[in-house]
Design a protein around this nucleic acid. Structure first.
Length: 303
DNA sequence: GGACGCTTCCGGATTACTTCA
DNA sequence: CTTGAAGTAATCCGGAAGCGT
């Protein structure tokens, strides 16, 4: 059995996460302990950024490494709907210093707006650099433009085609994370915006993790059941041994032979084992107890 | 060399839209 | 036709790390 590698200080949750090692690397379910290895992976990528990315960008063949005008099949928020969103979310105001200005008019993130970090600026970046090309949004915009005209809908949602999903899945099998070049290439290949590719990968990783957590949960349930059974069996065995001991006269050889602890192998001697066979086969066999000096269990005397 | 601000990326949580039974 | 559940694209937020000043 794979070790229930449990640090005494570990919580149950950490134990669960540790068991994520069950899957194989080929699985679409990434066998990664969510918190630790994911972070390590991310940090690894981060460490490589930005210069090292070029060495990892071969998984999608692309002849041009320059960012191109981003094609899109889908809809970003129109300026109108974007304004609506910003206005709709008062909590964002704090992040958006230019409340009276149209954020989309800000062309450079290094302009005055740059003093406001985080979300709103990022949104601005996404929107400004990924302006939807009207000629390439035919497929979805036909559906979405209706609502945009009356301005009732704040968020449009794309359904990826089977081909797009398949290619994204294929890419995900090779790399669960993308570097900018890969993202660009994939976006171009799929006629999506890089942001959409990025979001797809993020969501895909999240789903993978959720799936893995469910698998781990099932596994732990089974472990729990098995351990419960084992515990029940051992309790029964203990009762039987106690009963046997009471039934037997004192100082019976049987008693001594059965219960003598062999210090060298740390097992009960005698080999009688009221359930010894089963416990020996148990996948949850206990680790040997640490050696403590016991003046009453001198190896030379016992063996 | 350390502090600071900015940018980018990511994970987690959540929302909102679509599809289907 | 309606409705609720499931799936999932998109959004928001905070943290971490790299980089320039």
């Amino acid at each position: 059995m794979m070790g229930l590698h449990q640090d005494p200080s570990d919580s149950g949750l950490q134990l669960i996460l540790g068991l994520a090692l069950t899957a194989t690397p080929e699985d679409t379910i990434t066998p990664s302990p969510p918190s630790i290895s994911n972070n390590l992976h991310r940090h690894h990528l981060t460490t490589l950024r930005p210069n090292s990315y070029s060495s990892k960008s071969s998984f999608i063949s692309t002849s041009n490494s320059e960012p191109e005008p981003e094609p899109s099949l889908t809809l970003g928020l129109s300026r109108e709907t974007y304004r609506q969103q910003v206005v709709k979310l008062p909590r964002n105001i704090g992040h958006n210093k230019v409340s009276s200005e149209d954020p989309l008019e800000q062309t450079s993130p290094h302009s005055a707006i740059s003093s406001f970090s985080s979300g709103r600026v990022k949104r601005e970046r996404d929107l400004s650099c990924e302006e939807v090309d009207a000629t390439e949004t035919e497929r979805v915009s036909s559906r979405a433009s209706d609502e945009e005209e009356d301005g009732t809908t704040a968020r449009k949602k794309l359904r990826l085609t089977k081909e797009q999903s398949a290619l994204l899945e294929e890419s995900f099998k090779q790399h669960s994370t993308l570097n900018p070049k890969q993202k660009q290439a994939l976006a171009k290949q799929l006629s999506l915006r890089p942001r959409q590719v990025e979001v797809w990968f993020q969501n895909r990783r999240a789903r993978t993790k959720l799936k893995q957590t469910e698998v781990d949960c099932e596994f732990l349930k089974k472990c729990c059941e098995t351990l419960t059974d084992e515990n029940r069996r051992l309790q029964k065995e203990l009762q039987e041994l106690k009963a046997l001991k009471l039934a037997q006269p004192l100082y019976m050889p049987m008693s001594a032979a059965t219960l003598t602890m062999c210090p060298s192998c740390e097992r009960l001697g005698g080999g009688v084992g009221v359930g010894g066979g089963a416990s020996a086969k148990s996948p949850f066999s206990m680790a040997p107890k640490p050696h403590f000096f016991n003046p009453f269990a001198n190896p030379s005397a016992a063996c």
